[in-house]
Design a protein around this nucleic acid. Structure first.
Length: 370
DNA sequence: AAGCCGTGGCA
DNA sequence: TTGCCAAGGCT
């Protein structure tokens, strides 16, 4: 076995002691570490997926205040839950969490299952989240392999596999299963991640302060900055977007709810479409789109804002017009006219929050009849 | 398996 | 300024 080759001569007990001892002394005081309530641990782990601790803290506190228990979240309205996630990104996380929590309430009597088989079946619960919640909340010795853990272990055991590849995680899980503390799997897993966040960082790891320096093969060979191996691919394409803040004769604003799949699913937005490459003028194109897709007769005014918004895989170049709604149309669940005050209770992506902020400034928040 | 899915911070 | 990165999961 490859793992056993890797582990040859490795002082497991001493490593556990050094690692956990350091964590007991140096761990950060974080809001989700105040107790081991499985629900709160779960919420924190979902929020922390691909998201920095500093970003998560205020969201976590507000979320738990608003939905203190699994039942409270299960019974909450979708719109309210989306709003609580507004600005955090990766919005399918919260949709899946909401569905999963309902599932736990109905199928497991509100108790989060204490085994990987059942827990990992829930929506949005993958191998990492399952291991994290099971070990932290229930003390079960399951691996919780995230980016931190792969980085730390790749250095300690000199693993040159590409961590960008899907299958590589399993190799690290196999290692963790052999070295995890059976006495305190919670601290062991958390310590590995905390070490990755504070000491064994991607660039300039603080090896001189590292509690497990003596166990680290990368440090011994002076190659810690070459690990982990991670292939990158950046293929970001630009997408031109035409958007509009449209008011009716009463000064109400038209907003649209995005579909339930894909980018920014279920979030609200100001009506917009992709700009054509050349041909028709942007104004005409958006007006035609509004008529065809929404049955809305609109008359665009002037562009008042141009902004660029970068996602991980694409860039929106948005030109925003003001304008007015000319005729009647039918409001639906996805297409609403709302008052200026009411807008703030809907969840918008950051790019459209910016549009609204800018619009309010330009108009002084007042109705103007063009 | 590889591409999709957000956002803000930092060198 | 630009690219890269952060406690991943889904399809």
């Amino acid at each position: 076995m490859k793992e056993q080759t890797l582990l040859g001569g490795f002082a497991i007990k001493q490593f556990q002691q050094d690692l956990i001892g350091w964590f007991e002394k140096e761990q950060r005081d974080l809001p989700w570490r105040k107790d081991n309530d499985p629900y709160k641990v779960w919420v924190s782990e979902v929020m922390l997926q691909q998201t920095k601790v500093d970003t998560v803290i205020p969201y976590f506190q507000k979320f738990i205040e608003q939905f203190p228990t699994l039942e409270a979240l299960a019974e909450a309205d979708e719109e309210e839950v989306m709003k609580a996630w507004e600005g955090l990104g990766y919005y399918s996380r919260v949709r899946n969490l909401h569905a999963a929590v309902k599932e736990v309430k109905e199928q497991y009597g509100g108790k989060i299952p204490a085994n990987r088989e059942q827990f990992a079946k829930l929506k949005g619960v993958g191998p990492y989240t399952a291991g994290a919640v099971l070990s932290i909340a229930y003390g079960i010795p399951e691996p919780a392999v995230d980016g931190n853990v792969m980085r730390v272990l790749s250095r300690i055991f000199l693993v040159w596999e590409d961590i960008a590849k899907t299958g590589t995680r399993k190799l690290f899980e196999a290692i963790v299963r052999q070295i995890i503390s059976r006495e305190n799997p919670s601290y062991f897993n958390q310590a590995l991640m905390e070490l990755g966040a504070l000491i064994c960082t991607p660039r300039n790891p603080a090896c001189l302060l590292c509690p497990v320096q003596a166990h680290c093969r990368a440090f011994a060979e002076g190659v810690q900055t070459e690990l982990p191996v991670k292939t990158k691919k950046t293929n970001v394409k630009q997408v031109p977007i035409i958007a509009a803040v449209l008011k009716d004769e009463n000064g109400k604003v038209l907003i649209h709810k995005r579909g339930s799949e894909g980018l920014l699913a279920n979030l609200w937005e100001f009506p917009n479409c992709e700009a054509a490459d050349g041909q028709a003028s942007p104004e005409e194109r958006l007006e035609a789109f509004l008529k065809e897709q929404y049955g809305v007769q609109a008359q665009l005014g002037q562009p008042f804002l141009a902004l660029e918004h970068a996602f991980s895989h694409l860039i929106w170049d948005i030109t925003v017009y003001d304008g007015k709604i000319a005729g009647k149309f039918t409001e639906t669940e996805q297409l609403k006219l709302v008052g200026e005050k009411e807008i703030e209770s809907y969840a918008f992506p950051v790019s459209h929050q910016r549009i609204w902020e800018e619009y309010k400034q330009k108009t002084g928040g007042l109705f103007h009849p063009f």
